[in-house]
Simulated assay, not measured.
Amino acid sequence: MNILFIADPLASFKIYKDTTFAMMREAQKRGHTVSACLQQDLMWQRGAAVMADVRDITLTGDAVNWFDETGTRPVALKDFGAVLMRKDPPFDSEYFYATHLLEQAERDGAKVFNKPRALRDHPEKLAIMEFPQFIGPTLVTRSAADIKRFHAEHQDIILKPLDGMGGTGIFRVRPDGMNLGSIIETLNKNGAESVMVQKFLPEIVKGDKRVLVIGGKPVPFSLARIPQGSEVRGNLAAGGLGVAQPLSKRDFEIAEALGPILAARGLLLAGIDVIGDCVTEINVTSPTCFQEIHDQMGFDVAAMFVDALEAALTA
């Protein structure tokens, strides 16, 4: 089977930790062939199938020059055994348009994972609204007055933009309310953009856990991303320390409740972020942490993912 990965530039991969690389490596190990393209390589013209300029690649096993490639060639997405959308956030207008091209490719007969409509329907911050039983006190608003009221009620809060990634744009405001007005103005652009506000969860000191769900089933280990020093963010991109650990009873409860629902909607892979006992985000664009869990716990997450991919294609 030939698998197409729509991803960021291959030269930008940090292969010692990159999840898309782990997927490629496992696919090639099983005898599948691997191709890659960028989101901007997608193209559609009336009367034809959705196409992409793709490169066929072979993983070399070398830590530096980690792949060999052919030149680009135009291929219809429907001609691949599977198409994996692994473009990193942000979920901007171009990503949105790409999901429509991928949905047209599905009409052509392509098998796309995660399903394009499901990507659009599950913005990573707002997807938690459907599951209030698993989240902490949360507010989504443009209103400065609403945010100040929420702060007065909960005292210690986190504010974040709806389109942020990797911990960017996250602020903590403590009971003294220091700089709250300025932070609101920065995030909501003077009322032009919505902001998510959540009660601060002190359990963050034990980590922001990434709980992976593959084919509706939980990976039995999470990666707890633990803030370092005076930092409030546990994101690895913000300097957090990643510590793999077995899922807690509550983690399993959350994953087993959400997993089948997400899978039924075409989300083969999702990353549920959990602080303490509360879900804070549901990541569906390009969830990570495969290699960290494998390296620390010995559990082969990439193998579980490719098992689920192969099963989905024969279902």
Rank of each mutant, 00 (worst) to 15 (best):
V243S: 13
F299V: 14
D273Y: 03
M178Q: 14
I275A: 05
N283G: 06
Q198E: 00
M165T: 08
G240F: 04
I282V: 12
G191T: 09
A303D: 10
V195E: 03
I254V: 15
V219T: 03
E231P: 05
K206D: 11
R233N: 05
V195T: 11
A237D: 12
V279F: 00
D251H: 11
A255Q: 08
G167D: 11
G215H: 04
A302H: 06
G240K: 10
Q228T: 07
I293Y: 05
L162C: 02
G216N: 10
N283C: 05
L187S: 03
D273T: 06
E193I: 13
I293T: 05
V219A: 03
E292D: 11
L236I: 15
I184Y: 05
G234F: 07
R250Q: 03
D277Q: 06
V232I: 15
M178C: 08
P161M: 13
A192L: 12
R210F: 11
Q291A: 12
D208S: 05
F221L: 09
I204C: 02
G239C: 07
G167T: 12
E185T: 15
G266F: 14
D295M: 13
G240H: 07
N235Y: 07
A264N: 13
P202V: 07
A270W: 06
M165R: 07
S230W: 02
Q291H: 07
D277C: 02
N283R: 13
P218A: 06
Q245S: 12
Q198S: 01
K199G: 06
R210V: 14
M304E: 10
D163A: 05
S222T: 15
I272W: 04
D295L: 15
I226S: 08
E281C: 08
R250T: 04
G167C: 13
E193Q: 04
A238K: 12
L180F: 15
L269N: 05
A263Q: 13
A255T: 07
P227A: 02
R265N: 12
I214A: 05
S182D: 14
G266K: 08
E281D: 00
E253W: 07
E203P: 00
D273P: 01
F200R: 08
A224K: 01
T186F: 13
F171E: 04
C278G: 00
V197W: 03
P161I: 14
G229I: 12
E185W: 13
I158N: 02
F299G: 05
S286C: 11
D295H: 09
G229R: 03
E185Q: 15
T168S: 10
G259E: 07
D295S: 09
G164K: 04
K206S: 06
K160H: 14
M297G: 08
S182P: 01
I272K: 06
I214V: 13
P175E: 04
I261A: 00
T280R: 01
V205G: 01
I158K: 02
L223P: 07
N188E: 09
T285I: 15
E193N: 02
P161W: 11
C289Y: 07
L180A: 14
G259R: 00
F200K: 04
D208C: 04
F305R: 10
G166L: 14
K206P: 00
L247R: 00
I275K: 00
I158Y: 04
F171I: 12
L268E: 02
V301P: 09
K199Y: 03
A255L: 08
I183V: 15
A263G: 09
L269Q: 08
G216R: 09
E281V: 09
G216C: 04
S248G: 12
G191Q: 09
P202G: 03
G215C: 12
L201C: 03
Q198C: 01
V232W: 11
